[in-house]
Design a protein around this nucleic acid. Structure first.
Lengths: 211, 211
DNA sequence: TAGATTGTTAATCGATTAACAATC
DNA sequence: TAGATTGTTAATCGATTAACAATC
């Protein structure tokens, strides 16, 4: 496979381009988009757009622009979104619960994003066994088995900070490869796992600087 | 005020340092922390930590490190977290609702972060008038009045993509200065408003690349 | 053809890392 | 004093921007 080691800064912008392209495709499938328009709608300069697209091997036509559908498909392909991606959530408290509902709702409406929530886990016996939109909350004890049984390699982590490192080590054992971490703590990534930290509080504090 | 134009990359790391320092302070107030330990716990190199802290004018003692409490206070001061920060949420659907509960819960437990949710807005008459933890959902029509009455300058935007640009223009009129945007669209920032975009879907797609 | 826009190269800019004298 | 760690300077690295010949 031709993963030519594209820098992460570029990868990070691809979902944003893709989001814009989906919108353009709805309005005018079969049409073309320039780096100027795509950049405008993505918050990126036209030069940057061309540099990024050229880095991933997407090609446009001089004088015209990029074919919307082809470019969209290219991006989906690179981001692995042309296959079904199964996701589990660990930690179904306030936040995990909300994220679960959000994903279910969003990817129900959404056309064909192959992002599918397949499992929920918690270690609190009081909520294990409950259901969210038909998905049962499993005991964290059975995590490893469920992961291979259901075949998900991506996990959303919404447990308390104190438990997060322990849980991520379990994820590693279970063959998980990517983790979106909502716990307010920086985790040491075990070998073979990619972690992205995200924290509403951190975002708010960052913004607070600009008040 | 000494806002010496600190680059945003640095500002972005400050809340993370602060988060670590709060933890350290609980365990050993009055103690000192080295750039090595702080970096370790923040996912940043020691050199970077020292560069960042020096940029904001924080000082440590050679051979010892940085005083935990003093550094924490310095960070809070720079991030404006030594004053009360009032926040409103616009759009109380699935996501806005979850964010509201999350903030209320988190800043109840939290010691003394002066981040306070003071208002909720929506334009759907069916939910206007409802309450979340004692905070009423107001009609978006009265936004501008409420903003100045309650004195919040920061807003969390959780409306559908189609409405986001319109709403942010209203925010501008109402004197809002900072917006955390959850709508899956890049917004043109009106003069005087700082916008940070955040989108769970974008984060998941970004991670999907590494599967 | 004339006008528009790509793809790429070179120039610029800024951020990270390395190194080490100063200092507790 | 000896050992540790800061604060800063210089070196490196990488990302963004500008510019423009090639091409539709």
């Amino acid at each position: 496979m031709g993963k030519q080691n594209i820098p992460d800064v570029i990868i990070r912008r691809l979902p944003i381009y893709l989001r814009v392209l989906e919108g353009l495709y709805e309005d005018s499938p079969g049409d073309v988009v320039s780096s100027f328009e795509l950049g405008e709608k993505s918050g990126v300069t036209p030069a940057q757009v061309r540099k990024d697209l050229s880095a991933i091997g997407a090609v446009g036509k001089p004088g015209l622009g990029y074919n919307i559908e082809a470019l969209r498909d290219k991006l989906k392909n690179i981001l692995n979104l042309d296959k079904e991606i199964r996701v589990g959530i660990i930690g179904v408290g306030n936040l995990g619960h909300a994220v679960a509902r959000y994903i279910i709702q969003r990817y129900r409406t959404e056309r064909d994003y192959h992002l599918k929530l397949v499992a929920l886990f918690d270690s609190n016996p009081e909520i294990v066994g409950q259901c969210i939109n038909g998905i049962a909350i499993d005991d964290m004890k059975g995590f490893s088995g469920k992961a291979s049984e259901l075949g998900f390699r991506m996990v959303i982590l919404a447990v308390p900070a104190e438990e997060a490192q322990t849980v991520i080590n379990q994820c590693s054992t279970a063959g998980i490869e990517a983790v979106l971490n909502f716990a307010p703590i920086h985790l040491r990534a075990p070998r073979g796992i990619r972690i992205h930290d995200t924290d509403l509080s951190v975002d708010l504090m960052h913004l607070a600087y600009y008040l």
